[in-house]
Amino acid sequence: MSASTSPRTRLRRGRLFRAIPTAWRTPLAMVGAIIALAWIVIALIAPWAAPHDPLAQQLPRLTAPGDASVLGTDQVGRDVFSRLLTGARVTMPLALLMVVSATVLGTLIGSIAGFVGGWVDETLMRLTDLIMAFPTVILAMIIAASLGPSLLNAVIAGIVVSWPQYARVVRSLVLSLRTQNFVIAGRLLGYSPWRSLRSDILPNVAGPVLVLASLDIGTAILLLTGLSFLGLGAQPPAAEWGSMISGAMSHIDAWWLGVFPGLAILTVVMAFNFIGDSLRDALDPLSSAEREGAAGGTEHEEPAAVENPTTEEGR
């Protein structure tokens, strides 16, 4: 039997490596992955797939979905379908940019705080407390408003409000890892602090941070569309889902103006949350052990501390 297929071996392997393939096996993750992939494809092909220029005001105004226009037209005669497809190109990459930046910033600050400790840690953690003390959305609104309404500023506001959660998680992981024997062994072998962080600590922080980030993509999309809805993000005439809904507010009887971008936001957020949830479950040792079923019982009674190398080979 090859090592990678035996359930016993899978239990012991690095959790992240194990988690990704198992995560895809749950139906929830499959649904999430398919929807997310579909939206990514849409975003990529939107310029060619859109039947009309998303900004051109050339169609009859406020026509209901029908033959002329699949999803209808808006108050100035733009094609809702074309705007919806183009919107995917705006929101998703920016949400991703926001999450990646917040992750990098949070991981950097969190690992410095955890590794250096002392007053550096104290100062950085009070800073995260300060930011986390405010309701996220309100704080993002204040920052976006003070920077001036634009989509980029909305992204910056998003990064400012979301890095502290990464910093806190990373800090606590680093704090527990730095006292682990293998990290100390590295230091005794002459690792510099930077090397210790890079080669011993951060690779073991990656798993939980990845889960946090994947769960955060949905939130980021919601935040960006929300800020655009409030007029603090994307500016007219940009084709952005949040501002599309915002524009629909004054034409409440033209239901198609709000419903379709709303559905777009709903499905994207849901898809990324499904993926994040499944990834978290797969990384959680408890739930993955349950899934292993058969091998679970023997492992739990008497841990397989086999001295004989040949039994290891056999698995």
Binding site: G14, N181, F182, I184, A185, G190
Partner: peptide, 17 residues
């Protein structure tokens, strides 16, 4: 680095990654 150490718990002595 001419002083080295071996720890009690073999499971936490090696970097899993």
């Amino acid at each position: 680095t001419a002083m080295q150490m071996v720890f009690q718990d073999p499971n936490s002595s090696l970097n899993p990654r």
